[in-house]
Simulated assay, not measured.
Amino acid sequence: MNRPYIGIPMGDPAGIGPEIVVKALNEKSIYEICKPVVIGDRHVIEQAINFCSLNLSVNLTENAALGRYEAGVIDLIDLDNVDLSELKIGEVQALGGKAAFEYIEKSIDMANLGEVDAIATTPINKESLKAANINFIGHTEILADLTNIQDPLTMFEVRNMRVFFLSRHVSLRKACDMVTEERLLDYIIRCTEALKRLGIDEGVMAVAGLNPHSGEHGLFGNEEVTDVEPAITQAQALGYKVVGPIGADSVFHLALQGKFNSVLSLYHDQGHIATKTLDFERTIAITNGLPFLRTSVDHGTAFDIAGTGKASEISMVEAIRLAAKYSHSFKKEH
C-alpha cells in the first residue's frame, strides 16, 4: 500500500508544537507508514531541532509530492512568517496566533487540492489567536469555517475506544439543554456514517446516559425518558446499530473491553475524562465531517515548558499514526 501524504501544520511557534513535531519526525517508524510534510517556518523548526538536540536536517519543498520522505530529514513547506528576533517563546502574542492560523490555512488548502491525504494538527493558543484578531476558539471552529462545514463531529480514539461528543465548548447548563431527541438522532446517524468513512462498519454504538445511572427511569432526571430513549428507538427503527442509554460510570469501560465500537458522550467533560484518564498522551482527536481527514494531539501549547526540549512527542506520534491508519479508508469512502 502506498504511503499516504500527511500534512502537519507546526502550531503556535511560541509553544511546544515545533518541538513535538521534530521529535515525532525523529522516529524512523513514521516514515514506514506515511510521508509527513510540515507546514511551518524554517527558522522555528531549526530552532526546535536545536532545543531538542536532534540530528535532523531540513529539506525545503514547495509541494508535498517533491519531498524526500526519509528518516533524518524533515520535509518542510516554509511560509517564512516568523521573525525569531520578535518571537517570545512561551508567551501569548499576536505573532504566534497569526502564524499558527496561516499554517492551518495552508494545510487545508493542500488537503482540498489533494496534495496531502490527511492533516495531523499541533497545539494552538486561543489567547494568541485573539491577540491576532482571529476570532476562533479552536481548531474545530477554524476547520469548520474554512471548509464551510456546519457542526463537524469530534471523535476521540485511545487504544480501542472511540468517543463522540454531542456538544463541545459550551457551558454544562447549555450542554444539558442540547440533549434533545432531534439532536441525538441526528448525531447517531452522522456518527455512524463517520465511522463508515474510517472503515468501521461492524459493531454497535452506545449512547451514554446524562444523569447518574441514566436517571433510573425518571427518579433523578428525566432527559433519558423524554429524549435519549426515544432517539435511540427511532435510530434502531431506521436500522442503526445503537443501544442505550448506558450509565456513564460503566459505558466507557464496556467500550474499552470491546463491547461497543464507539460511545456517544452527551457532553464535553464526560468523554474527555474517560479517555484522558485512561491514557492522556495517547488520546487523539479526529474531526469527522470535513472534506478531508484530520487528527490532532489533544493538549495545549504548554508555554511553561516551551523551548526546553522537554515536551513529550507521544501524542504527536499517535496523531500521525492515526492519520496514516485511516487515510486510505477515508479517501475511499469520501
Rank of each mutant, 00 (worst) to 15 (best):
Arg183Thr: 13
Val21Leu: 00
Ser296Pro: 02
Leu146Trp: 12
Thr287Trp: 06
Ala64Thr: 06
Thr122Val: 06
Ile314Lys: 02
Thr283Glu: 05
Asn222Glu: 13
Glu32Trp: 10
Gly221Cys: 11
Met316Asn: 03
Leu264Asp: 04
Pro291Ser: 03
Ala71Asn: 15
Ile273Tyr: 10
Ile137Ala: 11
Ile137Val: 15
Tyr31Gln: 07
Ala100His: 01
Leu198Arg: 08
Asp117Gln: 09
Glu115Tyr: 09
Glu182Val: 15
Leu254Asp: 11
Lys276Arg: 14
Thr233Glu: 12
Tyr187Ala: 12
Ile16Lys: 02
Lys130Arg: 14
Ser265Thr: 04
Ile108Gly: 08
Tyr103Thr: 01
Ser167Cys: 15
Asp145Phe: 10
Ser250Phe: 11
Ile108Asn: 08
Ile77Ser: 04
Lys331Pro: 05
Val179Tyr: 03
Ile320Met: 01
Ile49Pro: 00
Leu95Lys: 00
Ala71Met: 12
Leu54Asn: 01
Lys332Ser: 13
Met161Pro: 04
Thr192Gln: 13
Asp186Gly: 11
Tyr69Ala: 07
Thr140Gly: 06
Asp186Cys: 14
Phe252Asn: 01
Ala274Leu: 03
Leu129Val: 05
Gln257His: 14
Leu54Val: 02
Tyr5Cys: 07
Glu157Ser: 14
Thr154Lys: 14
Leu166Asp: 08
Val116Asn: 02
Ser107Val: 02
Ile6Asn: 00
Thr226Val: 10
Ala208Ile: 07
Leu185Ser: 12
Ser214Tyr: 07
Ala206Met: 07
Val82Glu: 06
Leu143His: 05
Ile246Val: 14
Ala306Ile: 10
Arg173Gly: 13
Tyr103Ala: 01
Leu153Ser: 08
Gln47Arg: 14
Asp75Thr: 11
Ala302Glu: 08
Val243Asn: 09
Ser262Arg: 05
Ser327Gly: 06
Ser262Met: 09
Met10Cys: 02
Phe252Trp: 05
Ile74Cys: 07
Ala48Leu: 01
Gly7His: 09
Ser327Cys: 04
Asp269Lys: 09
Thr233Phe: 12
Ala64Val: 08
Ala237Lys: 15
Ala120Phe: 00
Pro123Asp: 04
Ser214Thr: 14
Phe292Trp: 07
Lys174Asn: 12
Ile16Ser: 00
Ile188Leu: 11
Ser315Ala: 13
Arg3Val: 05
Gly300Asp: 09
Leu143Glu: 06
Ile232Thr: 06
Phe101Tyr: 15
Glu223Asn: 05
Leu129Cys: 03
Ala118Val: 01
Gly221Lys: 07
Gln257Asp: 14
Phe165Val: 08
Leu84Ser: 13
Ile124Asp: 02
Glu202His: 13
Ala311Gln: 02
Arg159Cys: 14
Glu318Leu: 00
Asn81Met: 08
Gly96Val: 03
Thr140Tyr: 10
Leu210Val: 07
